[in-house]
Design a protein around this nucleic acid. Structure first.
Lengths: 236, 236
DNA sequence: TGATCTTTTGTACGATAGTACAAATCACAT
DNA sequence: ATGTGATTTGTACTATCGTACAAAAGATCA
């Protein structure tokens, strides 16, 4: 006989709890929090609605557990990659490695399942757009450390750029990242089939390339003030 | 007595219909479509729930009317600005003007109300994240023309960059734009108060500057292949 | 003023939401 | 085999959802 964990901890069956988590993750990430009912989740997981209440108490509790599940591994991965990136000698290479350390885990890592990282990141994007309260709290207290570490690392690679500009550009990076996961089909459509928006490898390469260039742009304050133009320019 | 428009066309009272539209726009843009009830909207507009049904028939109809109201003016504005931008001689200036023609109307224009453009753009961001069906249809058939015109204009300014790359980078631009409107407070927080994420002028300047640089990045195919590294790089 | 059309109000209905809880079922140690 | 605790099921409760509709109120013009 094999020893199982104490008895609590994890179920012995095809793991209903995990199935519910996976179904909820998928549905929330695709349709948003409020559009998905507990019954929808139970149906998709092959479970009974009451089972969701049993394992997670409330719908918010279910969302909370999804975050708990993913945040740790993803931030750990980012820390490792960031530490490795900081050791890169060449400055241009280092900046690229830093950006990659931020982007790659969002697309690939997570926990175990294939595409788990991308799915969770998409979930975060949707929750952020919906202004979900539960998500907002966790994100601010879980991801801000990572974001600051990332911003600091970029700033060290580009000391002549004001921190403010780097914050803005990091923000743009996250927005672009989110949007790529939320509407990949738009890329396919606009490129008339020449690009596949849901191909993670392409998205990563394109995003890294574009972001490195954006970071390297001249600082705003000193940006060729002779070139400055009025907000609109036409008419009047 | 004053002559009023024929009798149909517009109401004579403090305009309940407009109040409902404005309230719905605000609430949808902040909380998402499904989180907001018709009763919430009516309450915020100082109207009766039945009045919403009377003017817009259904909740979807209300959303549809919000889009109808804004799409025309915003795309018209973009066309005007884009046409003006294409006439700019200097190549660097032209690219910047093109990007500005895309960004500025999203932040400022719209119809009449102050912040109307930003609010509507935020609404689009949230609807896109929620995968809203009504919104998806309208967006694809209303904004794709504008997007193609924009992509073509950028491509003309940067003929050596493959169209695919430009599509990706335009996509990143829209994502960054959306995210800046959805979570402006994150910029303030991460910059420790040094920047104001909800200041439209700053957001525009930062976004234009970063995006122009991203567009000008070397094409992906020919991007210093000696530099290419494995997806992850550390460990192993 | 009274007739007619538009708009607003009040209320109600069926559907579905989240959650609670008792009963049934299951897995395992003894 | 049986008892025990963990899980699953089935069902029910209340709240709120979107929408419909009749009645009231307001406006317009003969």
């Amino acid at each position: 006989m094999v020893r199982k964990p104490t008895s609590k901890e994890a179920a012995r069956k095809p793991n209903m709890r995990e199935a519910i988590l996976a179904a909820a993750e998928e549905l929330f990430a695709t349709n948003g929090f409020n559009a998905v009912s507990v019954r929808d989740i139970a149906l998709a997981a092959g479970a009974n609605p009451g089972s969701v209440t049993y394992h997670f108490k409330t719908k918010d509790g279910l969302l909370l557990e999804i975050y708990r599940r993913h945040c740790g591994p993803m931030n750990l991965r980012r820390s490792e990659l960031l530490a490795a990136a900081k050791r890169v000698r060449d400055l241009q290479d280092r900046l690229e490695a830093i950006v990659r350390a931020y982007v790659v885990p969002a697309f690939t890592s997570g926990s175990d399942l294939a595409g788990g990282g991308a799915r969770f990141t998409r979930l975060r994007a949707v929750m952020s757009a919906e202004g979900n309260e539960v998500a907002r709290k966790i994100i601010a207290q879980t991801f801000d450390d990572t974001s600051h570490a990332f911003i600091d690392a970029v700033h060290e690679s580009l000391p002549h750029i004001p921190r403010t500009d780097i914050v803005w550009r990091s923000h743009f990076l996250l927005g672009a990242l989110y949007y790529s996961l939320v509407t990949p089909e738009r890329v396919s459509r606009l490129s008339r089939g020449e690009a596949d928006g849901s191909d993670a490898a392409s998205a990563i390469e394109q995003l890294v390339q574009a972001t490195v260039a954006a970071f390297q742009a001249p600082a705003l304050d000193q940006a060729t003030p002779a070139r400055r133009r009025p907000l609109v320019g036409s008419k009047a």
